[in-house]
Amino acid sequence: MPVRELSSGIYELDIDDRKMLATKNIMPGLSVYGERLITDDDTEYRQWDPSRSKLGAMVLKNFDIPLEADSTVLYLGAASGTTVSHVSDILTDGLVYAVEFSPRTMRDLIQLCDQRPNIIPILADANKPQSYAHIVEQVDVIFQDVAQPNQAEIAAINSKYFLEEHGHLMLSIKSRSIDTVASPKKIFKEEVRKLESGFDIEFEVLERKELDPFHEDHLGLVAKMFVDDEE
């Protein structure tokens, strides 16, 4: 079976001429949310459905994904862990801090953490990074998928506390959770502007693309914290 590595730890399998996104299962035999497991030459892959994962969609939209096997990641808005499980597959030698606010979804996420050694669950509000600053170390990547009206602000304040100097911010912006009525294009423009100059830290936006057809009215974005060298 032809296998192509799209990015570190992220693969495209070719099964009967149909392409499929997947990660190598670090817990062989265990399927997390009912996804397909495919074995090829002693390696087990887990199918990754881009329409259920913003990160998966970003991969297929040809983003340059800044995740490496030994990255440390702060994942805001982990939900029940669908995407987190794939991040955990990618970070064979790394760690993901999974922040989720809802106790109900945390219940599912914890089951996942019990299975996997490299996920640290945190039940907290991403608006208040001080409430988990005693747990989270400096990270290489912040991935955020929180669907809150103040998404940009949450990203900025978390970056301020936890992002390494040359770390990356990956963001999924849902226009509907900012304003249900205004046009998505306008909202995206405004959010990007906010990230570039709206806060006391600045970002350099490296890539931005809409995530359709996998997710409607969502913008994917990869940015780097802008470091002022004079200081």
């Binding site: 106790p103 945390m106 914890i110 953490c113 019990d114 050694p117 996920i119 640290i120 945190i122």
Partner: peptide
């Protein structure tokens, strides 16, 4: 290992 253990316990008790 220790941090994971601690955080899982903490989250469980919060839930």
């Amino acid at each position: 290992i220790l941090l994971r253990d601690v955080c899982i316990r903490a989250a469980k008790s919060q839930i």
